Amino acid sequence: MKKVSLLGLLFLSLAACKNTTNEPEKTEEVTTEVTAESAHEAKEVTLDNGKLWVANPETTEGIKNMQKIISERKQEATGAVLKEALENEFQMIFEKCTMTGEAHNQLHNYLLPLKMKLNQLDGTNDEAVISEIDAHLKEYSNYFQ
């Protein structure tokens, strides 16, 4: 049941990301359906014809903040405390997202696995998952500038 709730939260987070295209506004039901479909099909992040995608500054700042949270964490900090701090930054990325088009799609391809890793922090496997999160955050600069 917990996984279902977390998956629902992911759907809402992805749907909340501001996509500022000039397309007519779609109903929330369609947006949620497309988001649910994409959550089941995590796609690999690709480059823009061999070049880095241009990310909005707030996204890059949020990723850097998450890296800082991990690098400055105290060893005695619980997974729950770390998870809350990382998820707050993650949510800010979505709230401040202004990316559009394929760059926006590629950002979602990058963020979906990150969210899944955040969901795995449960107090029993924290060090292994934190290491995976840290490695994933370091990959951001391989795809975005």
Rank of each mutant, 00 (worst) to 15 (best):
Glu89Thr: 11
Thr78Tyr: 03
Glu102His: 04
Thr78Ala: 09
Ala103Pro: 04
Arg73Gln: 12
Glu102Ala: 03
Ile93Val: 14
Asn109Leu: 01
Pro57His: 02
Met66Glu: 03
Ser131Arg: 14
Ile133Arg: 10
Phe90Val: 07
Glu89Leu: 07
Tyr140Glu: 05
Asn56Arg: 02
Glu33Leu: 14
Glu29Ala: 15
Gln75Ser: 10
Gly101Ser: 03
Cys97Trp: 05
Lys83Gly: 13
Ala55Asn: 01
Gly50Asp: 06
Leu111Arg: 07
Asn119Trp: 07
Val34Arg: 13
Val30Ile: 13
Gly101Asn: 05
Ala77Thr: 08
Asn125Tyr: 07
Glu87Pro: 03
Asp126Cys: 10
Lys18Cys: 07
Glu25Gln: 13
Thr21Gly: 12
Leu112His: 07
Leu86Tyr: 09
Gly62Val: 00
Glu95Arg: 14
Leu111Pro: 08
Ala77Trp: 09
Asn88Pro: 02
Gly62Lys: 04
Lys96Ile: 02
Pro57Glu: 04
Leu107Phe: 02
Glu29Arg: 13
Asn88Cys: 11
Lys26Ala: 12
Glu76Ser: 12
Thr32Leu: 15
Ile69Cys: 01
Glu41Thr: 12
His40Ala: 09
Ala39Arg: 08
Ala103Thr: 06
Thr35Asp: 09
Ser131Trp: 06
Asn56Lys: 01
Val81His: 10
Leu107Gln: 05
Phe90Glu: 08
Gly101Lys: 03
Ile63Met: 05
Gln67Thr: 04
Asn109Tyr: 07
Ala55Lys: 00
Thr21Gln: 10
Ile93Met: 13
Asn105Thr: 08
Lys26Asp: 13
Leu114Ala: 08
Lys138Gly: 06
Leu137Lys: 10
Leu121Asp: 13
Leu112Gln: 08
Ile69Lys: 05
Ala55Arg: 00
Asn109Thr: 05
His136Leu: 11
Asn49Ala: 00
Thr124Trp: 09
Lys117Ala: 14
Ile63Val: 12
Glu58Cys: 02
His108Thr: 04
Thr32Met: 15
Ala36Lys: 15
Leu52Cys: 02
Ala55Thr: 03
Glu41Ile: 12
Lys138Pro: 04
Thr78Ile: 06
Glu95Gln: 13
Glu84Lys: 15
Asn125Gly: 12
Thr59His: 02
Gly50Glu: 04
Ala39Glu: 14
Glu23Gly: 06
Gly62Ala: 05
Ser131Cys: 09
Asn56Tyr: 01
Leu52Pro: 03
Val34Ser: 09
Leu111Trp: 07
Thr27Cys: 13
Ala36Phe: 15
Ala36Arg: 13
Ile133Pro: 10
Met99Leu: 05
Thr27Ile: 11
His136Asn: 11
Ile130Leu: 15
Glu139Ile: 00
Glu89Lys: 13
Leu82Pro: 08
Gly62Trp: 01
Asp126Pro: 11
Leu107Val: 03
Glu44Cys: 02
His136Lys: 14
Gln120Leu: 13
Ala85Lys: 15
